[in-house]
Nucleic acid binder design. Sequence first.
DNA 1: CTGTTAGCGCATTCAA
DNA 2: TTGAATGCGCTAACAG
Lengths: 345, 345
Amino acid sequence: MRPTVHDIAAEAGVSLATVDRVLNNRPGVRTVTRHKVERAIATLGYVRDVAAANLAKGRSYPLVFILPAGENSFMRGLEAEVRAAMARSAAERTDITILSVPAFDAPALAAALMEARERRPAGVAVVAVEAPEVTEAVKRLREDRIAVVTLVSDLPGSGRDHFAGVDNIAAGRTAGSLMGRFIGGREGAVAVVAGSMLVRDHRDRLEGFRAVMTEDFAGRCILPVIEGQDNPTLVEKLVGALLERQPDLAGIYSLGAGNRGLVAALEKAGREKTICAIAHELTPHSRAALVSGTIDALLNQNAGHEVRSAIRVLKAKADGLPVISAQERIRIDIFLKDNLPLEQA
Amino acid sequence: MRPTVHDIAAEAGVSLATVDRVLNNRPGVRTVTRHKVERAIATLGYVRDVAAANLAKGRSYPLVFILPAGENSFMRGLEAEVRAAMARSAAERTDITILSVPAFDAPALAAALMEARERRPAGVAVVAVEAPEVTEAVKRLREDRIAVVTLVSDLPGSGRDHFAGVDNIAAGRTAGSLMGRFIGGREGAVAVVAGSMLVRDHRDRLEGFRAVMTEDFAGRCILPVIEGQDNPTLVEKLVGALLERQPDLAGIYSLGAGNRGLVAALEKAGREKTICAIAHELTPHSRAALVSGTIDALLNQNAGHEVRSAIRVLKAKADGLPVISAQERIRIDIFLKDNLPLEQA
DNA sequence: CTGTTAGCGCATTCAA
DNA sequence: TTGAATGCGCTAACAG
């Protein structure tokens, strides 16, 4: 049987309370006593039973998630994952509140952060928009010792505790690499459609994509970025116009959302087979387009992983515990029609 | 505060023991009493605290992992993940033993399964070789109510409880799809290097690969399969010979292990830039080859996920609990040099 | 500075 | 068929 606090108390010749004190390094133990206990811990090879500890503590973690509103399928999927986490909250001892704000709206986001602050949660997870007022709000939360994790889109320089999302520069590079190889020797320019240059993730993807195209596919012309605000209607209009003025277009990299518009424009123009399209995020629409062949490859960040990671990190930070960063790294998935996970998964 | 057994006992007007009986549907409760309790559970919205339950039970899960011996980096990585799980065994209430057997050796594997059986574990995870004696041994374990999970390579028809591994047909298809697109319009045949046709995963990958090449890249010639026994030295020899007799080779799909041999042969022949190489499993060697460009794409199954999934399933099956199969699905990762996770991760 | 004691939510004797 | 009592491994008052 593995050793318990009782065993180490006996071995060290002290009481349970003392053992508990050194285990949770609380004050009020003489150095000699502490050493005795530590030695007992070492010789017996004691490892604390976290489940039992949590049971005894009865601690719970009030958390706030701030997510963008709107039709964006990825964000709705993200919200669904947060709600799934709420359903598990009994078992995970969390108490989660969701706050919804308009997309790409820095003042509204800053206001939501202040609202979150008033709830005095243990931690806040936020899909960030890069703006001074948002940075400022995050700093205020940190001053109140509220843990902050940026989700999906980061906010460097804000002092947030952690970023739960993918390396978007690498994502852009990956898209560039696939695009260059898939197009191969064919002629024609490549277009880039983004949502907004106000969010860090989109800027990073663009940077990565351009870097690879310059390094490895130097002859290829990259057209100026189109900003579609992650809005399918707008994206469709802009891409439609693009297709008209670029009869020789070889590829489109859609690094934001609104892919329904992209797909519609390509199919209306009858160019879905000749243009290599690479987009982000696996949603019901993008999935269908991948299967049909309109989209050639999809880069994805697993929203479920991101939410669960954010919660783990928030809890750890709230307890002042270190985070095993290797374990919290979110991978960039590449999906072709052949390695698509089953529906619903 | 969420309701506890006490609350539902009070609500139903019975004792703790009775509540416990209906909760774990044990006999010895009148139907009326049972109904009262069930109603209380429903109205209070009770959910059992699994951690507390486990604490009270003090149950632990003796498990056996049977892994192939040898230099195969992927398998050694797998073993490292099992050892990592052993390190967590205190917290997870598992007690894991590793059994090592020669690779591709059905009699030895069958013997190991019988050895595992004598330990009377709650469950066994095994990297399967497809052979009647192995199937038979697995059936015996099942008869002794020992849960069995196949790991990495499956054993259909054996009655194993679960397969913790990727869909290898889909993996082969993915490789085919990438191969066809990366080669594009270039001339030349494509070769396939396998480990052994005795293991299901290799056979499945081959099937998927051939299917896609036939469906989508019909003009491309696929050479007969080379079996390298996952042995780098043998692979190097065989691929070396292949390169000599096929001066126009356009691509190589290595669906097994021994990639050190593949890389060495390509580089010695100076063909690493002109031949598109796609291989499996991210190891230090394959990673280096991907970065240098000798390997163009790597398909990967995350050994850590597989091991953790196997353990979860084994515990669930041992307790007679259902498995949420969607959650246990192992994804096929595609790595290019651009989306490689950081070292060590 | 150290020890005693009473739970956390649940499972399990042993009596009744 | 039911209930009272005890303990799992740990934390947290409260005493000393």
